[in-house]
Amino acid sequence: MKDNIVTVQHLSFTYKDTKHPAVNDVSFNIPKGSWTTLVGHNGSGKSTIARLLDGILLPDENSETLIQIDGITLNEKTMWDIRDKVGIVFQNPDNQFVGATVEDDVAFGLENRQVPRLKMQTIVHDVINQVGMLKFQKSEPQYLSGGQKQRVAIAGILAIGPKLIILDESTSMLDPAGKDKILALIRKVQKENGLTIFSITHDINEASQADQILVLNQGTLLASGSPIEIFKDESLIKSAGLELPLFYKVKNKLIKRGITVPQEIDNEKKLVNYLCQLNLKM
């Protein structure tokens, strides 16, 4: 498909010395410019998928397997081109901070791509500004909070000018306020840079705001669709170890009781309005 930035077909992966595949015949698409979340319980293979998309792991041999990112088919030869298009923000803020200071860390990816120093300086300054860390440009990581380190990680990725950002539980080690700030920042840079976001999360609220949800269970894809579609079936979300947001629980219960609630109602306010109108008609 032309409008998909990521196309994955029949993707399987088995870790060395293990019997069962961690990812088993998974196929999905990620539309360009979308926010797609991947949910699943611990050990269901989410991080493995993130690593496969970036070519850090190579899929099990299978002639039907296809990973295509921004028109490039991933294989050993295109691995490095793919990494120019994909950036990953990992879970632990400390274990991805390579540089000695904020600016050094942001420059790491540029150094790897042999960008000349003068050009590096402009880019580094720009992206640090974009994530609001200019005041900390020369700071060492031990003086930064977890959220600030994640901002630096995002800046380091933006510096490369990627098309797709993968968040592998990037906010799970932050406090609720820090989490919201990072998500808001990602929404901002997504808009500013026209990015696609692929977010692995255990946060149901984040998932409910996504354009597309993928549900993974023991390495296989159970379902994919919009939050409204996915949340219709409570057992689906339960299988990912998550709880439905209260609003969807209420909506599902109403439908079960035989009250018609239109699909497009996707928040509390709309539901309340709709129920009031229904009440008036009765």
Partner: peptide
């Protein structure tokens, strides 16, 4: 993931 290749040439910030 950030493009580091062992032994490859790098520029310096």
């Amino acid at each position: 993931a950030r493009g580091y290749r062992e032994g490859a040439k790098r520029t310096r910030y």
